[in-house]
């Protein structure tokens, strides 16, 4: 018991490496996950398995215009789900993801506090109330034009 025996540590823990990346970038870029995996001596699949397990890690870069769709009670009843479905298909992403062009990211929120305008969503800083799924392409086009 004369000396401190450090843990078997030939390779750093992937969690620690990913925490550093997240700290630096605010999310986990793919090349960085691959780099960390190599440094930790594991496959990228294993590294992604770890990264996607923990809440702390963000797997995609937030879009330039984050879209937040309200799933509060009022919006739910007024067809908020329909908005979400339409956004999913228009953008080709799931909540928590970002479009390939980096323009939009999609997330759901419990309540935007805009129940009187339900169903509601926020694109960037703009609040949209009483939105119908049909209007979605027009709204998105506005931001695409802006780039």
């Amino acid at each position: 018991m004369a000396t401190v025996v450090s843990p078997v540590k030939t390779r750093p823990s992937i969690i620690v490496l990913l925490q550093e990346v997240q700290e630096r970038y605010g999310y986990l870029p793919r090349e960085e996950v691959a780099r960390c995996a190599r440094a930790a001596g594991i496959s990228v699949a294993q590294a992604y398995g770890v990264a996607s397990f923990y809440n702390f890690f963000k797997l995609s870069k937030p879009g330039k215009y984050p879209i937040r769709v309200c799933t509060g009670t009022a919006c739910h009843v007024q067809g908020g789900q329909g908005l979400l479905e339409r956004l999913r298909s228009e953008l080709g992403i799931e909540p928590g993801e970002t479009t390939p062009d980096g323009l939009f990211s999609l997330e759901t929120v419990a309540c935007l506090g805009a129940c009187s305008m339900s169903p509601a969503m926020v694109v960037g800083d703009d609040v949209y109330g009483r939105v119908t799924p049909r209007e979605i392409p027009r709204i998105l086009a506005r931001y695409r034009r802006r780039g």
Binding site: R30, E31, A34, S60, K61, G63, E97, T98, T99, D101
Partner: peptide, 10 residues
Amino acid sequence: LVAATREKEG
């Protein structure tokens, strides 16, 4: 190979 595949978020 895996890192180079197109990232969804661009």
